[in-house]
Simulated assay, not measured.
Amino acid sequence: MPKGVTRRRPRTRAALLRAALETFAEQGFRAASIEQICERAGFTRGAFYSNFSSKEELFLALFDEHSERIVRRITELVDSIATEDLTLQGLVEVLSDVEPAERDWYLVTTEFTLHAIRDPQAAWVLARHDARLRAEIARCLREHLDRAGRTLTVDADELARLLIAVREGGLAQSYVEPDELPPGQLERRFLAILLTAVSAERTDGRPGPG
C-alpha cells in the first residue's frame, strides 16, 4: 500500500466514525445507510469498505472508542485527586459526571442493543465488547476504591453490571424528563450509599486518605 494511503487511513477511519455517530443519532441505526455515512464524511463506499465490513462493525468500533474514552477520562479525573483527598463522595462525583454529548451516544447504543436482542449473532458479538468494558470498569473500581482506603466485598464484574444498569436506566429517565431528573442525579444521591454497602475499610495497614 502506498505510504500516502497508509497515512490517510487513520484520518479516513476517524472521519467515518464521527459521521456514523452523527448519522446513527439522527436517523437511527437501522434507518441510517452506508451511503449517508459516506456522504457526511466526504468519502466513497470504497473508502468505507476498506475500513469496515458492515454497519455492525462500524458500530462496534464506535463502542470500543467510546468505552476507551470514558474509562480514560474517569481514570484521569480520579488520578488528579491526591490520595489523601480521595473519598467515596469524591469518587462518586467523577462517576456521576455526564457530558452533554453523551445523549447522542445513548440514542445510538440503545437502538443497537435492541437490534442485538432481536439478533442472536449481534447479541453474541455485543456481549464480547460489553465484557471487555466491564472488565475495565471492574479494574478501575478496585483500584480507585483501594486508593480511597476501601476494598470490595462483592464480585467486581457483577458490581460493574449494576453500575452500568443504573447509569443507562437513569439516563433513559433523564432524557425523557430532563427538568425532573438531570443526568447523573441518581448516582450523586445513591452511589455513595451503594459503594459503602459493597465495600469495607481496608485492614492491611496501608494508609488511606487522611
Rank of each mutant, 00 (worst) to 15 (best):
V125I: 15
Y49C: 10
S54P: 05
S50Y: 12
L60Y: 09
L60T: 07
E84C: 06
L181D: 04
P10R: 01
R161Y: 07
E201A: 14
D179F: 10
F52V: 03
I34G: 03
D85Y: 12
L17Q: 08
F112H: 05
R139T: 08
E93M: 13
L171D: 00
E65L: 14
E158W: 13
L126V: 03
A47S: 09
E102L: 14
A192Y: 00
R118D: 04
A31F: 06
H115L: 15
T109L: 10
P2A: 04
V98G: 03
E102G: 04
A32L: 11
A61Q: 12
H66I: 08
R188M: 00
A192I: 06
T83V: 15
R142Y: 02
I37K: 02
L163S: 08
R134F: 15
F112T: 06
Q27H: 12
E68C: 08
V92K: 07
R9C: 02
L58V: 04
F59R: 00
E56V: 13
R8K: 14
E168C: 05
E22W: 03
R118Y: 05
D179Q: 13
A192F: 05
L58A: 11
A172N: 04
F52H: 02
V198E: 00
F52G: 01
F112A: 01
A47K: 02
Y106L: 06
G28D: 01
A123T: 02
L159Y: 00
L88Y: 02
L181T: 09
R72D: 14
L141I: 13
V5N: 06
L77R: 15
D97G: 13
L62A: 08
R118M: 08
G4N: 09
A135S: 12
V108C: 06
P182I: 05
A165L: 14
D157V: 13
L86K: 05
V98W: 08
Y106F: 15
R13C: 00
